Computed example of a mutant assay.
Amino acid sequence: MERRTLLKMIALLTGGAVIGGNAFLTGCSSSKEHDLKERLKLTPQQIALLDEVADTILPTTQKSPGAKAAKVGSFMTVMVNDCYEVPDQQIFLEGMEKLEAACKKMHHLGFVEATAEQRLALLTAIDKEAKEYAQKKGEAPNHYYTMFKQLTLLGYFSSEIGYKQALRYNQVPGRYEGDVPYKKGDKAWA
């Protein structure tokens, strides 16, 4: 039985639409969309670029490793390929090219070759641009840097490094304690 037929039967039996049915049907998308998704596999150089962007957003500190150590670039690849709609995938890919072009314009170097200070200066400027874009947005598509930043945070704090070293982690919590003393500088709970 085909997935599309099964979803129609479920919708008919339950008397309504299947919530998230579009996600189930992505395997039944047109060949044009499928061909586009095949082209969105990122190269090792692009993944390395994403690792460097993520590591600039969440760098290594004395207390915990950075986003590059958590392999956030690979995480971004999976999320973009598996979870993003085709228009957002295009924005993400074009954003990587825009980031490289902006770095070459600002520092006359590619992002990977730039120093940590140069990278930070560039991302700070692009972050400001993304915030201004979000205020004017309306029905405009997402900004690429917002995607980079969100995926960096999600990838890092859902990784083992993020939740065990950057946050406090309690695998099996004990009884409920509603009033836990907090000392300034304590890590947040994972």
Rank of each mutant, 00 (worst) to 15 (best):
L123C: 01
Y163Q: 12
V112S: 06
A121R: 04
H108F: 11
T124H: 15
Q118S: 06
A116T: 13
K184R: 11
E160F: 11
V112C: 03
A134I: 04
N170P: 05
K131H: 12
K149G: 02
P141F: 04
A116P: 06
L151F: 10
G178Y: 05
T115N: 11
L153T: 10
K149V: 04
D179T: 15
P173L: 04
R119M: 04
M106C: 09
L123I: 02
G174T: 02
R175C: 14
K98H: 14
Y144G: 01
D127R: 14
T115S: 15
K164P: 03
R119Q: 09
K149C: 09
S159I: 06
Q150C: 08
K184Q: 10
K137H: 10
Y163T: 09
A140Q: 10
L93V: 14
E160Y: 14
T152A: 04
Y176V: 07
A125E: 12
M147H: 02
E94I: 06
P141D: 06
Q171S: 15
H108W: 12
K98M: 15
E132C: 10
G138H: 08
E177A: 07
L151P: 00
A188T: 00
G178E: 05
C103D: 00
K105D: 11
E160R: 15
S159A: 10
D186H: 07
S159R: 07
K164Y: 04
N170C: 12
A114T: 00
P173N: 07
K187T: 04
A116Y: 10
K104T: 09
T146A: 11
E113M: 12
H143G: 03
A121L: 07
Q171V: 11
V180Q: 06
K105Q: 12
G95S: 03
D179A: 15
E113R: 13
E100L: 13
G174H: 03
E132P: 00
S159L: 08
A134H: 14
E94T: 09
L120E: 13
G138Q: 07
Q118G: 02
L123A: 02
E117H: 07
A140R: 12
K137G: 06
K105P: 03
Y145I: 00
G162L: 02
A188F: 01
V180E: 02
A121E: 04
Y163H: 15
L154V: 11
E132K: 14
D179V: 14
C103P: 00
S159V: 08
G110N: 07
L93S: 10
G110Y: 05
Y156D: 03
K128C: 10
Y156S: 03
I161Q: 06
F157G: 01
M147G: 01
L154K: 15
Y169L: 06
P141H: 07
W189P: 02
C103Q: 00
K149P: 04
Y182E: 08
E94F: 09
P141N: 07
E139Y: 12
F148S: 00
K104H: 14
Y145M: 10
I161M: 09
